[in-house]
Write a protein that binds this DNA or RNA. Sequence first.
DNA 1: GGAAAGACGTATCTAGTGGC
DNA 2: GCCACTAGATACGTCTTTCC
Length: 212
Amino acid sequence: MYGEYELIVATKEPWRLGLGIGAYKALVATGREAFVKLREAAGAYGELLDLLKAHKWIYIKLATDDGFRAAAKQNKKSITVAGVVMHLELVSGRGGSLVAKYFTRNLGKALAAADKLKAAGLRPNIVKSGPNYVVYIATADLLRLAERDGEIRRAIALYLAEKAKDGTPRQREIAEKILRRRPFSIFQCLSASSRSEPRRSASSAGGYGIEA
DNA sequence: GGAAAGACGTATCTAGTGGC
DNA sequence: GCCACTAGATACGTCTTTCC
């Protein structure tokens, strides 16, 4: 697939940038290298594109960053609590609430997960749901956890923001209600996490185009 | 195709609050 | 203090999606 992509820049002096193709175009890179060049060229703009979650930028990162690709594959709105990977879920009761759940068909695993969560000072519940056992922590515990853990706070904020934007009408209603009710700010969470990262040197991303 | 995991909806319980 | 009402939380079933 990578061979199908070419990074071509239009310029008055194409020979300075790469292989000249036509009077004003330079072929800078092909295949995977085209994505790598694009990513390098983005420089500081990359941070902005990260925050904006621009889908074309995400495609570039998926093509150039193995770790990001693995994380994206694994990431299903899940959080890790006391070593237990749980996924977030909006529950549409009368008011609507947010819970973190761990699914398993193995009762022993469910009990073990609940023990870990208890050891972390939480109050897990185990319910049978069809053939599954569901270990979950309720909204109150989840929010207490979020106060202590920035990563979990960020995951919850992103999840709620995503549901408020792209969820079903009912999910949007619940997500917006929770966001109004709780002192969550997606922007606080994002800016807090971006502040903790080292600054990158700035460079221009202008002038590049990509052709498939 | 089947098992496991994930998503969603409904019913019910519980706690808080206001009116009397 | 009691009752009614409301909102939030929990319980649980079912359907869908994903993965082997």
